[in-house]
Nucleic acid binder design. Sequence first.
DNA 1: AAGTGACG
DNA 2: GGCT
Length: 221
Amino acid sequence: MSSPNGDLLEGFSERVDVMPGVWFLPRFAEPESLNSDLADVVARAPVRQMKTPRGFLMGVAMSNCGQCGWVSDRRGYRYAEHDPDSGEPWPEMPRSFSLVALAAAKACGFDAFAPDVCLINRYAVGKGMGAHQDRDEQDLEQPIVSISLGLPARFFMVGPERRGRSIPIDVADGDVVVFGGPARLHYHGVRPLKPGDHAVHGASRWNLTFRCARSLQPVAP
DNA sequence: AAGTGACG
DNA sequence: GGCT
């Protein structure tokens, strides 16, 4: 298929190259099926505020789906096969999640993205996340795919050092950010959420981040 | 410090 | 950049 957007899937808008290894895909995801499946997942594994290793309560409420889930407590950051709140395995990753994550990664040149984890972050008004790295995954060859749902927010990407100038990326419902390769370990964060009222999610922003935490080999979606 | 926030 |  020949089009101005050669390596993008047909029917989608543009791909913005933010910096080497960071791409912004405005309105790439169709929120409706994601919203429905998200509701099912968080009904089984409700979001909760985890503690940092130093004992501070994180502002953002989190859950997971997939083969394991990212957790934080006084023992540190890690991936766990079970939800520590319920003792149950994390809910299975919905097909709608893995399909859009795969397509977004492919649009950025990652042809075999097979995430085994989706970390679910819910931002309430006033909540944000300071600059941090996603470095707890085994497979750093694979990118991080981040899907925004609900209220808009300002994501920021710094670089390999925690401090320094950041590049803002304003993300809204259905937007996708992909970062990998030279940016896979870049520090990044989210500015505190401004008040608003989204038709579906009310005064919240949801973020779905897909990672290859343990799978070192591709798995069919 | 995946924290918050005053100050410049 | 300091503080906790």
